[in-house]
Write a protein that binds this DNA or RNA. Structure first.
Lengths: 301, 301
DNA sequence: CTAGAGGTACAACACCTGGTTGTGACCGCC
DNA sequence: GGCGGTCACAACCAGGTGTTGTACCTCTAG
């Protein structure tokens, strides 16, 4: 591709060869191989050089785009890179939408979005500079944050109850946390010690709920299948969670109010990170409004 | 790249190897080579397979984009291709803007824009199916078009006079074609027999102008340099022409009216071309309004 | 604790891709 | 008609890239 573009730009194989520090014959071979692979002629060879054919003209912008894509790909892992690298906790959850909104507001800022395994990995990556910012729930009071790590509460996400059509709350406009005592809430996949598990542990303790985290987690779809078919099992999701709604399944998302349990998403970054786009991200996110009538775990207050 | 994406998708080198019909060792080598070139680790190797590192996660979408770009590039020259291939007569001239506008209106339609050498090449390419449509001025009456070639007048582009600050018309709000008789109009690069040359020949004959097409054509910039410095030499450009205005040059673009000479751009296509996007292009362009008070050559009436 | 299964990396080797050098054919121009 | 400039072809060679065989690691089951 590089050879093709060079030859198209200069119009002479010898010049392209000089630019690439190879011989004219090598350029000729490369172009011939590309033409063979594509099955079309890209140049018409004349005594005054090589001119693009129609196919070659159509191909050229795509070839340039390919080189740009290659450059961007390499830049995405270059140590002195420009793209802002952000960790979100699951691509279908609310923070991913926050990042998407930021990208729409600032399309000129290059973003790389990754998803780290757990909060420890995220802390370590932020501290080491491998990533620039991380969306996490900070389970420690601010004064106990590691040195040099800053955090800002950016979004309090209300919880919703997901039930099937035969569930007792299936028709409710909303439900109070206290009313859920004694009902089966199933949340497979919660790993003890993680921020999510901590959140739901505290939620269960605060309102006398029984949250079952037992059983292997086979993904969201089997969970929803179970919930849809059961009259007694329900589960929680964040308001901003994008569920893959299986066709024909009659699931209900029921707001939880009085009080509204909210999951406290924070943005973490290294205080001395000089990345210019980091300021833009923080400015765009602002800080979460603490709504009245909401509940958060003790550690988030 | 393909190997990296396959390994990232499957999470196991052996599975990626099966998908690519190579051995696991080859996958290992390819990934190792990519990591060496990039200077970062892309996978953490575990006993249960390979998991992406943070760098790997950031790199993955770029790698996918690269593969998509490669696919698009190959598709652009595939015989049974999908992209609509359109010939415009110069990238800075009005038809290129028409195509850009069409692309904005229908961003989902893939376009390849090429520029053919002359009208004969364009005719031949349309007839052979190498390109799908061509913007040209048709110098033949419609009934003499080759069999199977259709044409539609899509845009009448008014001409403008370009002068330097010391030219006698430099301060005019507009100028009549007849007033230009006896003044030097310089249009280097007109090749006898081409559509442009025919147009300007007819224009000169109709209003008694003297248009000098002599001298080699070194590009637009030297032409504008000459015009800017001269008190007597002017040139014509189409209203939609994008001029590269050299900084500090005081050039004037003066509309020509009473009558307004307009250059008749037509769209040519093969009547039996089944490309679905071709209809969309014709619908978007519509047909040119024949304004009163305009002048076109005899062959365009 | 050990053995085995399942995963990746390393080593040795064969092949063929892709470079170089040398040369020929073609074209336009003086 | 020679000459300069262009690209293509042939021969050759090195090294990149595949294969096979094997070592090594880690997790798990007994």
């Amino acid at each position: 591709m590089r050879t093709f573009v060079a030859a198209a730009d200069t119009g002479r194989f010898q010049e392209a060869a000089d630019a690439l520090s190879i011989t004219q014959q090598a350029v000729s071979k490369r172009v011939a191989a590309l033409e063979r692979d594509l099955g079309v002629r890209l140049f018409t060879r004349t005594a005054r050089g090589a001119r693009l054919t129609i196919d070659g003209q159509a191909f050229l912008p795509h070839a340039r785009e390919l080189l740009r894509a290659e450059e961007r790909a390499a830049a995405s892992v270059r140590p002195g890179r420009r793209a802002l690298r952000v960790d979100v906790i699951g691509r279908r959850l609310a923070p991913a939408d926050l990042v998407r909104a930021f990208h729409r507001a600032h399309p000129e800022i290059e973003l790389d979005v990754v998803t780290l395994f757990d909060a420890d990995a995220a802390f370590a990556a932020v501290r080491s500079g491998t990533i620039d910012a991380s969306f996490r729930a900070v389970t420690l009071p601010a004064r106990e944050l590691p040195d040099g790590i800053a955090a800002l509460r950016v979004y309090d996400e209300p919880l919703q109850l997901v039930t099937g059509p035969r569930h007792v709350f299936a028709g409710a406009r909303s439900v109070r946390p206290g009313e859920l005592a004694g009902h089966r809430i199933w949340m497979p996949g919660l790993v003890a010690g993680t921020e999510w598990a901590t959140f739901y542990d505290d939620l269960a303790a605060a309102f006398g709920l029984t949250i079952e985290a037992t059983g292997p987690h086979f993904g969201t779809e089997p969970l929803l299948d179970t919930v849809a078919d059961s009259a007694t099992v329900a589960t929680f999701v964040g308001e901003g969670t994008r569920l893959v709604w299986p066709a024909g399944q009659d699931l209900r998302r029921i707001p939880v109010h009085d009080p509204t349990p909210v999951y406290p998403h924070s943005l973490l970054w290294r205080a001395d990170n000089p990345h210019p786009a980091l300021g833009a991200l923080r400015a765009h996110l602002g800080s979460a409004r603490r709504e009245v009538g909401t509940w958060t775990p003790q550690w988030a207050r």
